[in-house]
């Protein structure tokens, strides 16, 4: 190809240069860090790695992290579905403002997210004295960690569901109601099955954030070893104690979580893209031919095809 024809495509040399540059950038900023997590974790050999993971404090950190995620996700799922239902299927004033407010936690610094709960429930907070008098611990305890995590993961599921449910429209739900379904029957039999992939996608993202949250949790946790240390906080403590292998062993668990998240996310994205394609096919049914199986079946029943 002569360079004169390059008006529609870059010359190969430019393509190769640009691709190389982009890949180098990604390798430096993403690839190397990811590799080095595992390299550092195994720097002292596999036995040291396994010993670090078997540490009881590491174990209790893992357990606490899972408990927090399990506490946070159901609440955010219910909220996500409720908010998306209202926003996607109804018209009302103030909808844009509501969407902005749902997005707000994304813009707020995690440190601020933790601080607000300290200001309410902490010793010097609004309810601090009352809570202390009744011996209820929220800050420096599990409830505070859950609250801070709820705050930072708040928008994830709703944000995934709103555009999806808007695209799906109201007709299927209206059909269910006109066929006699109750509100709950409609929800369980029509709405939820239709949004399950989007919901799963939101849950994957929210879970990654819930398990990995550091800033907000570190403000409210109090760093009590074996009690209020989540896995990311555990990483911090070990790192600050110059326990490089221990810190990176714990970090490698979180990095694997991240890789699983990316894998699951990619798989669900692929699934959803297929469903979106089907959805658009449904809206212009005559233009998109049915899958091959449909056509062969049609051929074996020619009379039934044409009533």
């Amino acid at each position: 190809m002569k360079p004169r024809h390059s008006a529609l495509a870059e010359p190969p040399i430019v393509r190769i240069a640009l691709t190389t540059l982009a890949l180098l950038f990604l390798a430096f900023f993403l690839g190397l860090p990811l590799l080095s997590v595992f390299a550092e974790a195994f720097a002292a050999g596999v036995p040291a790695y396994l010993r670090a993971l078997a540490d009881p404090e590491a174990r209790s950190a893992v357990i606490l992290t899972v408990i927090v995620a399990l506490g946070v996700l159901p609440l955010n799922i219910v909220f996500g579905v409720a908010a998306a239902w209202v926003i996607a299927k109804f018209e009302f004033r103030g909808k844009a403002a509501l969407i902005t407010l749902i997005d707000l936690p994304f813009a707020v610094s995690p440190v601020v997210a933790g601080l607000v709960f300290v200001l309410i429930f902490g010793a010097q907070g609004l309810f601090g004295p009352w809570l202390m008098a009744h011996d209820i611990k929220i800050i420096f305890a599990l409830p505070g960690i859950v609250l801070a995590t709820l705050f930072v993961t708040f928008p994830f599921i709703a944000r995934e569901l709103i555009p999806l449910m808007q695209a799906q429209g109201r007709e299927e739900e209206e059909a269910a109601i006109s066929l006699g379904a109750s509100g709950w029957q409609m929800l369980w039999r029509v709405t939820l099955p239709n949004i399950k992939w989007g919901l799963l996608y939101g849950v994957i993202l929210a879970n990654a954030r819930a398990m990995g949250e550091f800033g907000a949790v570190s403000v409210v946790s109090g760093h009590i070893r074996g009690e209020t240390n989540t896995l990311p906080l555990h990483v911090e403590i070990l790192y600050n104690e110059y326990n490089q292998v221990g810190a990176f062993a714990a970090a490698s668990v979180l990095a694997m979580l991240a890789l699983v998240t990316l894998l699951a996310k990619t798989a669900v994205e692929w699934r959803m893209r297929r469903e979106t394609a089907m959805l658009s096919a449904e809206l212009s049914p005559e233009r998109v031919p049915a899958p091959a199986s449909g056509r062969t079946a049609g051929a074996t029943h020619p009379s039934a095809e044409r009533p």
Binding site: E171, E172, E174, A175, A176, S178, L179, G180, A181, S182, Q185, R189, V190, P193, N194, M278, L279, E282, L283
Partner: peptide
């Protein structure tokens, strides 16, 4: 009611679509 874009439940088979009104 027959909807303009049919509003068939996309995750159900044809059979389950028709059976829906009876099942609920």
């Amino acid at each position: 009611f027959v909807f303009q874009h049919y509003a068939l439940f996309r995750h159900m088979t044809v059979f389950e679509n028709v059976a829906f009104g009876l099942r609920v």
